[in-house]
């Protein structure tokens, strides 16, 4: 056994030394490489997971805010429309009122004018009557002055009428 394996170079002491070398390397690497590396990888994956979750949260928040804003805008639009409608209504009312007032005023003026006219006419009629009476009196006086025959009567009336039309 010694001859065969020995010529290959198998030597228990060196073998042992190499095993020890490996164990030493393993121990050292465990502390300087694997442990920190695993910690780092775990940390990183944790961090990535966290930030993903955070992103999700932020996205949710943004969506919520967006929905809120949309709702607000809708509400504001509705409100604005209401205000416009109200203003239109108010304007319409004001116009209506103005129109009514105007018509009332017009009626009042018309009424006043009619009364005026009426009065003028009454005055004119009264004037005419008084003049007519005067004429009649005049004519009567003339008739009384003369002996009246049929012919003379007729002439007198025509004459009077002629005179009154001349007055008028």
């Amino acid at each position: 056994m010694e001859g065969g394996l020995g010529s290959l170079g198998i030597e228990p002491s060196i073998l042992l030394a190499q095993v020890i070398n490996f164990v030493i390397l393993f121990g050292l690497l465990y502390f300087v490489a694997y442990k920190p590396l695993m910690r780092m990888l775990d940390n990183r994956s944790k961090k990535i997971k966290e930030s993903m979750e955070h992103t999700e949260y932020i996205k949710e928040q943004a969506e919520l805010a967006e929905r809120e804003t949309a709702k607000r805008i809708q509400e504001a639009t509705k409100e604005g429309q209401k205000i416009i409608m109200r203003a239109e209504q108010a304007g319409e009312e004001a116009r209506q009122k103005a129109r009514e007032e105007a018509s009332v005023e017009a009626e009042r003026l018309i009424g006043k004018a009619q009364i005026e006219i009426q009065r003028e006419r009454d005055a004119a009629v009264a004037d005419l009557q008084s003049q007519f009476a005067n004429l009649t009196v005049l004519a009567a006086g003339k008739v009384i002055d003369q002996t009246l025959d049929k012919e003379g009567h007729k002439k007198l009336i025509e004459k009077t009428l002629e005179e009154s039309s001349g007055i008028k």
Binding site: L8, I10, L16, Q18
Partner: peptide, 12 residues
Amino acid sequence: TDINMPLALALV
């Protein structure tokens, strides 16, 4: 290239 090394690793 020294057989003790591969043998040591194989034993480990």
